[in-house]
Simulated scan of single mutants.
Amino acid sequence: MEILEIGMQAPEFNIIGSDDKTHKLSDYIGKKVILFFYPKDNTPG
């Protein structure tokens, strides 16, 4: 797996949202998207 650097284009991916719908990154072409990752809840990380 390639490590992403700041400013690099993110690879295509699908994710299930809090609305229980599947969202594809490509669905948001031309829009601003913020990806935020955090450690699993209630862990020391």
Rank of each mutant, 00 (worst) to 15 (best):
G17T: 01
H23L: 04
K40I: 13
P39T: 08
I16M: 15
P39G: 06
H23P: 09
F13K: 08
H23K: 13
K21Y: 11
K31S: 08
T22Y: 09
L25K: 00
L35Q: 15
T22F: 03
I29C: 11
D41P: 02
K21G: 05
N42L: 04
D20Y: 03
K31E: 03
Y38R: 14
Y38T: 13
F36S: 13
F37S: 11
F13N: 15
F36P: 01
I29W: 12
F36G: 01
K40M: 14
G30K: 02
K21F: 11
Y38D: 15
I29V: 12
N14W: 00
N42S: 05
G30N: 08
K32F: 13
K32A: 15
E12R: 14
N42V: 07
L35G: 15
N42P: 04
F13P: 14
I16H: 02
K40C: 08
K31R: 14
T22A: 10
D20G: 04
K21T: 06
N42W: 09
G17L: 01
G30H: 01
L25M: 03
K32I: 08
F36V: 05
H23C: 12
S26Q: 11
T43A: 10
F36L: 13
T43D: 09
D41N: 11
G17E: 00
T43I: 03
F13W: 12
I29M: 07
I34H: 06
D41A: 07
I15L: 15
L25W: 00
I29Y: 09
G30Q: 05
Y28K: 00
I29E: 13
N14Y: 04
K31V: 01
D20T: 05
L25D: 00
D41V: 11
K40T: 12
Y38F: 09
D41W: 12
V33G: 01
S26F: 07
N42K: 04
K31P: 04
D27A: 01
F37T: 11
F13A: 07
K40G: 10
S26R: 03
D20N: 02
K32V: 12
V33C: 03
S26N: 02
F13I: 07
E12K: 12
D27N: 04
T43G: 08
S26T: 05
I34C: 07
S26L: 15
K32Y: 11
D20W: 01
F37L: 02
F13E: 09
K31I: 02
F13V: 13
K40W: 06
K32R: 13
D19Y: 08
F37Q: 10
L25P: 01
S26V: 05
K21I: 11
K24I: 01
F13R: 04
D20E: 08
D19M: 09
P39V: 12
